[in-house]
Amino acid sequence: MTTPVIELRGVSRRYDDGPPALDEASLTVRPGEAVAILGPSGSGKSSLLNLIAGLDRPDAGTVTVDGVRVDQLGEAGSALYRRSKIGMVFQFFNLLDDLTVADNVALPARLAGAARGAAARRAAELLEALGIGRHARDRPGQLSGGERQRVAVARALMNRPPLLLADEPTGALDAAAGQSVSTLLTDLNAEGQTIVVVTHDLALAKACTSRTVRIADGRIAEDVRPSSVAPEAVR
């Protein structure tokens, strides 16, 4: 059996004196899966994403991504982990307006120590593959929302991460642009990219993922796998 890309075991996280944001959550994601994390605001899905991304630490339990114990990393180790193991796509793009599209995409590789020429070549390949190579010298502000999200996806893939995390990737887009990004994620998964999408949008989950995990009150309430596999009972 293949080694999981993500393995959470008994993860809990509590903020202040309120109820736990996550309560003994366990989750396994294997290479090549496309998983949607669903749940209403306050359910714990953002906390789960932050723990996987190494932006937060659990109070209990373990978080392992591509063989790395993320919950044990310090600040420097977490930054290195995010550069090498995950790519992140956000709702509002988080592109740098004072850089060209190509330089935005190349930035993760440059931060990781790649030579300028090698980073530029990789960025050009990604922009062409994602259908926006003609915008390489433009600034993000000159692009449509859908095009900017494609730039964000290209940037997330720059260092060939084993895991792509997408946080409400179509939340700021109109219907047509949202459909374009949904199709892009589907195509990336078909090529073998492991993807976790955190979203409120059931239509997006159905369109670009084959497994849905629902979170309620900090617990994983349901884990629905492809139709060929029976739904996993959640205890």
Rank of each mutant, 00 (worst) to 15 (best):
R30E: 15
L107P: 03
D23E: 14
G192S: 10
S228Q: 09
T64E: 15
G18A: 14
T212N: 06
Q149E: 06
G218C: 11
K206I: 01
L130F: 13
D167E: 09
D56R: 00
A102S: 12
G54I: 08
R116S: 14
V68I: 15
A102K: 00
L204I: 07
V89H: 00
A233M: 09
T28A: 13
Q149L: 04
H135I: 00
G171D: 02
R219H: 07
S41L: 08
G44A: 12
A207C: 03
R69M: 10
A176P: 01
S46C: 11
F90Y: 15
G113R: 12
Y15I: 09
V213R: 00
G67I: 07
N159H: 06
R150M: 08
V11L: 07
L95S: 09
V70A: 06
L127Y: 05
R57W: 14
I86Y: 03
R69T: 12
P4A: 09
G44Y: 00
L184V: 10
G74C: 09
S228M: 08
P161T: 08
H200W: 08
A21C: 11
L27E: 07
I220A: 03
T212G: 00
F92E: 13
D66E: 12
P20V: 02
G32N: 05
L111C: 13
G145L: 06
A112I: 07
R121Q: 14
I132T: 05
R9G: 04
L27K: 02
N159D: 10
G218R: 04
A124T: 11
S180R: 12
P19D: 14
G18Y: 10
L96P: 02
R13G: 01
R69Y: 07
C208H: 02
A190E: 14
L130Q: 01
R82M: 11
D217S: 13
A118M: 06
A129M: 11
E75R: 10
M88W: 03
G44H: 05
H135Q: 12
A124F: 00
A115R: 15
P31F: 02
G131T: 07
E7Y: 02
